[in-house]
Design a protein around this nucleic acid. Structure first.
Lengths: 343, 343
DNA sequence: AAAATTTCAGAAACCGGTTGCCGAATCAAG
DNA sequence: CTTGATTCGGCAACCGGTTTCTGAAATTTT
């Protein structure tokens, strides 16, 4: 039998075949077709085969709307990114989409763009479409109010988390990542470690700074100078290093709150004649390939394993849909990727 | 009336209300409810109001599967990214999602990951879900074979294009962008312009290189040396500049095929003691903010306006769904963003 | 050969909405 | 007061599948 085309009339917009057309062609009733295609009931092997080839001949694909109407299941989930789709959302989404696709689930993409009105609009849309569940993601790990109360379907927060401790959230262990970074610097013999990071109002910045200082304290050490809060930009990395050099504080390593900051720091250090990693070791955060690899030398960095995080969130959502919820906040470890900037 | 919750029993997974529950509460038949909510038929104002408040009280949202079943419309489109979701796909997707959301359409996200099998799987899934249309995107502008023949629904290619000239494709005018870049360099007095770009097998690289050389020829000039094909990386940008300097070819500007290459070039130029833009002006391509703004000095760059491109593709798809297809290849202009690297 | 059992496929209800048609109630005209 | 026109809401078919129930035909048992 030759491979079937999706339509007998290429170029024309043919209507998809329905089950009754298959029934007609096979000379049976629609109920029989349904049983044959789904392996239900008891049918003669010859009948089943006749139905199967009729279905194949017509390129029959069951109308999911009709299936949904009986089963109540849509095999569909919504993914809401509370802020704009960006660098952090992508690996999350890819991991989630991959895990959901393997479970035969399709994903509705909703970009709320930091607008609560858009967010509620999307929520209503998804509920009207009777999605089986919802994944909420965002650019920041900060906790946020639940997207809705008493929803008829399970919700999982990924990267971002919900302020309701009963909600299921999957977040990276940023504190653990920061501790690992500091441990690595200590292990390579550094003792005067400075910290340059993002805005103090950002949860990630304060958590990482506190964890870094905490790990140093365990070793009987302090940060070289106070943590330097600024922005998540290369320009701030450059500026902070110049301030550090100007202040005369001795330091042999800088742990940065992001790879962008670290890259700016690397540039400013080299401009000032300090060698990396000879004079100063450098650790970044995010393991963003274009930054970490584009930097000279390539950056050691903390990877939050966002794709795994997204996958985990999706798996938890699937479990919740199947009646096995995982309430509460779940942290997942970060991974230190060692490159030349600390070699 | 107090604002309604989505459910009367927060915490529990309440089933969504159906139209017959609304009918029961309002004391009318389901047909009447449908007419009241959709403004059809002729109803007494009092009856309509009674139905509306009953619906609101129950938080009624019509089951889209049921609506789909009799209208045949799903108000849903599929978006297939042929390769991994990345830097180029994101603005495209955001633009498309925005335009579609305004048209009350929901978007299915499908990441084919460069795998033809995944691609066909997603295509079948989308057809089974009876999406109203499909947008195909990809990382490269290169033409690709149509995703399917004789499909029952319209398809629009965005950024990427189809080899079938009858298919609707929306692509950036890369050649025009390259010409504009060269024109800008000429206008600022540069005459010896080198070109560093990506792999020769990439459509984008050859098109841009040819357009740049063509525009120079119109001015009676040649490129400074042959176009340098390599990779889309900073490392290649650095290496190519060193080669250029080593060869002794005089040049006062470099037009780069990407912002990453341009940034590498900037670093290598400065390391060799050439000032940007004093000695050498630099133009990138893509206008990728983190690269163009992180670079010192900030990069002049060609913006392909991908978000607009995505929006246009979505609008063409909506038109096609409404019976007004726009067959053929549609190019959209690029925009030159001028910054300090050519000031 | 008649009765009991098993096999297999069709009829019909159902999921949750939409819509055309029809009849009851209301009102104006004769 | 009867007739005719109009308003308004219910009934039922329909969209495209799934599933239960039922009964005819085929098979086995006595």
């Amino acid at each position: 039998m030759p491979p079937r085309k999706l339509s007998e009339t290429p170029g024309a917009l043919a209507k998809p075949a329905t089950i009754s057309e298959v029934a007609l062609l096979a000379g049976v009733s629609v109920g029989t077709v349904s049983k044959a295609l789904n392996g239900r009931g008891s049918l003669r092997a010859e009948t089943r085969q006749r139905v199967l080839s009729a279905a194949e001949q017509l390129g029959f694909q069951p109308n999911r709307a009709a299936v949904t109407l009986n089963s109540g299941r849509t095999y569909t989930v919504g993914m809401i990114t509370t802020d704009t789709i960006g660098r952090f959302s992508i690996p999350l989404m890819m991991g989630a989409e991959d895990a959901l696709g393997a479970g035969e689930m399709s994903v509705f993409l909703c970009d709320a763009r930091d607008d609560p009105i858009r967010e509620q609009y999307y929520l209503r849309t998804l509920l009207s479409r009777r999605v089986d569940g919802i994944i909420v993601t965002g650019r920041r790990t900060q906790a946020r109010p639940p997207i809705g109360a008493g929803l008829p379907i399970p919700v999982v927060y990924a990267f971002i988390s919900s302020t309701d401790p009963e909600d299921c959230s999957v977040v990276p262990d940023e504190a653990g990542g920061a501790r690992t970074a500091v441990e690595h610097l200590l292990a390579t013999g550094r003792r005067r470690i400075a910290h340059i990071t993002g805005p103090e109002r950002h949860h990630s910045a304060t958590v990482r700074a506190a964890a870094a200082a905490g790990r140093l304290a365990e070793a009987g050490l302090d940060l070289a100078g106070a943590p330097m809060f600024g922005e998540w930009s290369e320009a701030w990395g450059r500026q902070a290093v110049r301030m550090l050099l100007g202040a005369g504080t001795p330091f042999d390593a800088v742990f940065c709150g992001s790879d962008q900051i670290a890259r700016g720091a690397a540039d400013a250090l080299q401009a000032a004649g300090r060698r990396v990693p000879g004079d100063v070791a450098l650790v970044g955060f995010d393991n963003w390939d274009v930054m970490a690899l584009g930097c000279q030398p390539p950056l050691t960095s903390v990877d939050m394993e966002l794709e795994t995080l997204g996958r985990t969130a999706a798996e938890m959502l699937l479990a919740a849909i199947n009646g096995e919820p995982s309430p509460g906040r779940h942290t997942r470890p970060c991974r230190l990727v060692i490159r030349d900037s600390t070699a």
